[in-house]
Amino acid sequence: MHADAPMRAVILLVDDDAGDQELTRRAFAEAPVDLRIVSDGAEAIDYLRRQGNHAVDAPRPDIILLDLNMPRLDGREVLRRIRADAQLKDLVVIVLTTSDQDVDARACYALHCNSFITKPVRVETFTAAMHEIGAYWFELATLPPV
């Protein structure tokens, strides 16, 4: 892990699907990760701006795992708002979606996501993907300094 990084990396999962929340929770169960979960785009924005129900205890995430199709505010709009916000625009955003459509990938990269990943079907592959994300962003890459 990078020298300047906090002891436990914070990952914010933005996903409305209880099953995917559970899968991600279990994938990171044994990792030194503080996994925070919000259920839709509007709540994600509240969390990142520390407002509404997230005024307290909302540590700035090191990476955001963002689902695309969500109620109220979808993933694309969340990404757009993050990149338009001076305080948040440096955040690492990984789009994690069921979609394998080119059009979605293209749209997300156009909105400057850091990576676009289609959720793997097998649980082993899913867990491995989560670990690889952790290994890449927390060990190999240098995250933007806070």
Binding site: D17, G19, D20, L23, R26, N69, T98, S99, Q101, K119, V121, R122, V123, E124, F126
Partner: peptide
């Protein structure tokens, strides 16, 4: 998309 999603859950949670 929509049909794949529950199918993926069934596969994943069966493995778990």
């Amino acid at each position: 998309h929509d049909l794949q999603e529950p199918l993926r859950k069934i596969v994943s949670f069966s493995e778990l």
